[in-house]
Write a protein that binds this DNA or RNA. Sequence first.
DNA 1: ACGTTTGAAGACCGATCGGTTTCTATTCGG
DNA 2: CCGAATAGAAACCGATCGGTCTTCAAACGT
Lengths: 234, 234
Amino acid sequence: MVDYATNAPSTAEPHDGQVALGAPRRRTQQERRETTIGRLIDATISVIAEVGYANASLGVICERSGVSRGGLFRHFDSRLDLMVATAAEVGKRHIAHARRQLGELRAPTILEALRLMRDRHRNVENVVWFELMVAARTDPDLRIRLSETGRQFFADIVDAARLIPGTELFPAEDLEMLVNTLEHTFDGEAIRREIAPDPVAEDRRLELAAEFAEFLIMRRFNATKPADTPSTTD
Amino acid sequence: MVDYATNAPSTAEPHDGQVALGAPRRRTQQERRETTIGRLIDATISVIAEVGYANASLGVICERSGVSRGGLFRHFDSRLDLMVATAAEVGKRHIAHARRQLGELRAPTILEALRLMRDRHRNVENVVWFELMVAARTDPDLRIRLSETGRQFFADIVDAARLIPGTELFPAEDLEMLVNTLEHTFDGEAIRREIAPDPVAEDRRLELAAEFAEFLIMRRFNATKPADTPSTTD
DNA sequence: ACGTTTGAAGACCGATCGGTTTCTATTCGG
DNA sequence: CCGAATAGAAACCGATCGGTCTTCAAACGT
């Protein structure tokens, strides 16, 4: 019933090394596997970002990735598995993004670093991660799987923050708390601004966050030096 | 086919005021209406809190409320309408809760007020509101409707915050930004702790937030009074 | 007391979901 | 070059979804 000729499986390939014009031939199985998995995860990311976790159906994911249902279920046993793999991927990209940005700045001010952080939290990677985290609250299976992925992710974030000068003043747990606090703030803002944007307040909030960080530094500095210091602290 | 006798429509009601034993008779139409709407919204709140917005199907909502599908659609034209009404209700309850708590405290410290605020953001009312806000990001209809409901809600929150002493020093837009920042932080924390709880960090975060708030109040206090004041500010 | 209106029930409908099965195409191992 | 194993496509399945329709009961207006 079906016309298989459209696939045109092999228009002859006379010798071994030579390939026909533009026809990418003889991919290895692992290559095939990795490209389709990559296409599926890329599609999942963009679909979740667009329609949310709950509405990211396998139908639209397959459609957008160009992979069939059968193809999907060859590599992922369930929708949950696909989502967990997607979570790991967005986490990895988020970390890479952060390290790259901080690396490009030679002497980042706190405000600059925070602005980059805030903008990162508005990107697809973090939006998808957040969608997954919110869904995990009411989905026990996802919650278990995501908490494992999250452990690594959250630790990596704090590690990356060490690239910012000034952070060496903080012990690990204090820095972790500070970084997480900022993440929470930017996550919450990113959600709220979808229904009630307020760019002016966002700018002021960024300055406030920078002041908070400086407040903590000052506080720690004073705590470690009980004797009063000269007022020429410019 | 159905046995209507179980309903026992009217076992006679001889005179006007007298009712039969324990049988609640002759409710007015408006009463009927309000109670079933109330039951539906209560059920919607608890179901969203349990299984999330996307999985809060009309089936389980009807089941839990004890109202039939037909009954539901008499009062709400669509699931969206029910959700919007639910949003308004949780917003109203959240505000009432906040005002009641702050009113009970006679001289609330910042730390006390912040702890109450944080705990409120872990309650059903706020969890449901947050679920709706997250869903609104990817649901255009819900976003439009919720942004209208939100305008009032967000304004009421800032109004309620005026009950905290010290806030009178701040102009409206500064206080609004400050309050919203705290809301974002507590919202983000409330989500994160579902998959990665860290009670120690939560306590420190609360203390530091309070210290920072006091710092801001002090700074503004000094700014509004350019002349130095006696240091006996206990 | 009685016809009208409103509230509530529940069977029913098409659409869509995640997942399975069946079958074909491609790469692999020798 | 050829069987075996893997990748991928697509028809298919039962369950469930939001929403409608028909029907009966209760409250209302007069």
